[in-house]
């Protein structure tokens, strides 16, 4: 086995993968991990080279556009400890092109595709579960704490959907925010956050929604387990209809 280390940044990871692929080492016989600076750490540190990372992306985009898409979702999941799988997945993507995503019987492909799917699933979920509240100044705010870093594609979704209102999406776990001003999207971070005052009507509309939510269920079919498996409790914190449970 060849052992390599990188600095732990996303760019460092892609750049390390690029240099291993260039070195001619067999990816199936190579292990890549984050440098921990422990005494007995084994392996050679690969220096981060952003030009190298950029070039790898461009080559992969031409060879296997679906794999680039998978890679994009994979990074949203912010997983650590799958560097070796990612290295082998990208090597296979260069070898087989977009067919690589069908090679699910390969452990590394399976791990990368499953991780990417997890992020994709949560993005889809948040498109439904995100709740906007109207603030006193007439703008709208949605708060969330997703496992994956989905704010960018999520904000793009709402920029097409709720384009006639000015809104913010705030990821409370990552302190990151998206802003739509009615014309353009921007992203940033918020270190200090306090929830602004709500508009006068907001509470009344929320109550109407809570009433609807309660009465739309058929009492004879009550099924809290099914409800929870479709809508895990970790998302309830910001759900208007689940306040006070």
């Amino acid at each position: 086995m060849n052992h390599y280390l990188y600095d732990g940044t996303p760019e460092g990871l892609v750049s390390a993968i690029a240099s291993i692929l260039d070195s001619g080492d067999d990816p199936e016989q190579t292990v890549l991990a984050v440098q921990q600076n422990t005494l007995f750490e084994e392996g050679m540190l690969l220096r981060t080279d952003s030009a190298l990372a950029e070039a790898l992306f461009e080559r992969l985009r031409l060879r296997a556009p679906d794999a680039v898409q998978t890679l994009w979702y994979f990074t949203m999941a912010e997983t650590t400890e799958l560097e070796t799988s990612l290295l082998r997945y990208i090597a296979l993507a260069f070898e087989h092109g977009d067919r690589v995503n069908g090679y699910l019987t390969h452990a590394s492909v399976k791990a990368v595709v499953a991780t990417a799917r997890k992020a994709g699933r949560e993005l889809h979920r948040m498109k439904g579960l995100l709740r906007f509240e109207q603030l006193r100044d007439g703008t709208w705010l949605a708060r969330m704490e997703p496992d994956c870093n989905v704010i960018q594609p999520l904000a793009r979704h709402f920029s097409r959907r709720l384009r006639a209102q000015e809104w913010f999406i705030y990821d409370a776990g990552r302190h990151s925010a998206a802003h739509w001003d009615g014309h353009a999207l921007s992203f940033g971070t918020l270190e200090q956050f306090s929830r602004p005052e709500l508009s006068a009507e907001e509470e009344a509309v929320q109550q109407l929604w809570q009433t609807f939510f309660k009465t739309i269920a058929i009492p004879e079919r009550k099924n809290p387990r099914l409800q929870k498996s479709n809508m895990p409790a970790k998302y309830w914190k910001y759900l208007t209809e689940k306040q006070g449970e």
Partner: peptide, 13 residues
């Protein structure tokens, strides 16, 4: 897109 799930487990869209 499903937006919520009611107490009977059915999706609310």
């Amino acid at each position: 897109i499903c937006h919520s799930w009611a107490d009977d487990g059915r999706c609310i869209s």
